[in-house]
């Protein structure tokens, strides 16, 4: 039974969690093209490597983000949503600065 280090509750059995899938940006609901939407809905990157995913702790109803290596199932880091957003903004800032 794998352990998931929940950002709020600490390490818990993976049976308490549900994975929604990779973190993706939804295309525009008003003018997103069929190709963009088909890509978002059906065509996955399906990467063998490190991805960020949405996870739900069912016992507490809390959604959070986990960074996982899909080749060995190692969970590298987890964030609450606020922390993840902060992290993304920081990253965008540094990429913008380069």
């Amino acid at each position: 039974m794998k352990l998931m280090p929940c950002p709020v509750h600490g390490e818990r059995n993976i049976a308490e969690f549900v994975c929604k899938g990779p973190v993706l940006s939804m295309p525009s609901a008003t003018h997103g093209s069929p190709q963009l939407w088909a890509r978002y809905l059906f065509l996955a990157e399906n990467k063998a490597g490190i991805i960020d995913e949405w996870w739900l702790h069912t016992a507490s109803g809390m959604w959070f983000v986990a960074r996982r290596d899909t080749t060995c199932d190692e969970i590298l880091q987890t964030w609450s949503i606020e922390a993840y957003r902060k992290e993304r903004r920081k990253k965008q800032k540094t990429t913008a600065q380069r």
Partner: peptide, 18 residues
Amino acid sequence: GHSSLLANKLGFRLPIRT
């Protein structure tokens, strides 16, 4: 089991979750 890996290299996506 490895279809997406090859496809990704070639630049097209597959409707696959492994």
